[in-house]
Design a protein around this nucleic acid. Sequence first.
DNA 1: ATCGGCTCGCGCAA
DNA 2: TGCGCGAAGCCGAT
Length: 453
Amino acid sequence: MLKRNDDIDRRSRRLRAGKRGEGPVVYWMSRDLRAADNWALLWAQQEAMDRDKPVQVLYCHNPTRYCSSARQELFALKGLAELQQSFAGYTIDFVLLEGDPVETIPQHLASSDCHLLATDFSPLRTKQRQLQYLCDTLSVPIFEIDSHNIIPAWVISEKKEYGAYTIRPKINRLLPEYLTDFPEFKPRLRPNFQHPDPINVTRLAGQASNQHAAELSWLKSGENAAQAALQRALESLGDYAVNRNDPTKNGQSNMSPYLHFGQLSPQRLAWEVHQSDLSTEVRESYLEELIVRRELADNFCFYESSYDRFEGFPDWARKTLEEHRNDKREYQYSLNQFEQAQTHESLWNACQMDLVSRGKLHGYLRMYWAKKILEWSPSPEEALEYAIQLNDTYSIDGNDPNGYNGVAWAIGGVHDRAWRERAVFGKIRYMNEAGCRRKFDVQLYLEKVSKSS
DNA sequence: ATCGGCTCGCGCAA
DNA sequence: TGCGCGAAGCCGAT
């Protein structure tokens, strides 16, 4: 028998009070069904332990709700299929209703003995609306568990933070308490578990192969692949510090798709890096990116409901963009022209082709790419819309808080400061191809992209 | 190659 | 009330 673990409790919060019954059934709605790495599952275990009865976990997840392309769906479903196969060895008493819309949950509740509902945290609109709907509709207690962050978003800060420098001290103060290994996971075994509706990966892949850019050659889906990628990242992180700012080198850790689709817990990744024998400098710079910047993005989306709109920009940025709204745009393109990589600047076109063919774009180039969309669009609103749509569709980790935050940073000055005023941008930080040339070998990048496209 | 100016506002020290 | 400084820069002067 495990002892009750406070570490689990402090990562959850009650959203709705209500009467708990005898049958401890947890309806767990999550993007992140990550067995031993998931605080939500550990939370469910704790609930079961308290009542000494099995917990039924109803997994309501429709990947298409969070995907904007065939290859994103395929990635999500492949991971889910792998998970289904491993349930037998893990689970308490699982029921998966993959694909069920949230509106059907009250019906499931009515026809079962479910007495509380737990859900994984996401700061995005879709999830927050679902939760509001459930809080309004249900009478059972509802809990939210943040296994999406190392420190729960509502614990770090109760307001929208202004910048990395305001959230960093808050994170650092709490980090020793929260950056821990995971407690023991001892599921009750349910030996002959058969999933009622297993995902057929072969059929899926067949369907998807007809669609545009269905699968990425450099990226395998699933928790096993995520673990392998984690090990590779740990081995190559030493070079990461040197190479990560050069798009012509393969210096990034490529973990974000696994984090985005819940195939790897960010806390697992952070803990492994923290415990590794990498140099202090490398560990700190990586954890700065993984924790401070990632949780700042969640903070922005959680506390700013207009995280994907002009209204979500800071006052100074809205004002300056407003003042330059009618500036002449030297070049102006439609969403379709951007999408087809048909601008006058070959570096921008290469970025777009790179994004489409590989499903990702190097961090530095993502900034340049989004800034140019602002420069060449009819208005800041349209620029934001184009950049978000292109990123959501073509980036394998589209529809992620990091993506919305990154675009808002580039186009709307979110978490940034004012800079020298100029046409169209106003005081929004400007970037151009000359800056890229100072940073890396642009010609080599162009050649690499044209070879692989 | 390197440096300073550009520029806003938060949070803390006083 | 004043001051330091920030998620990734640009540009012109030296």
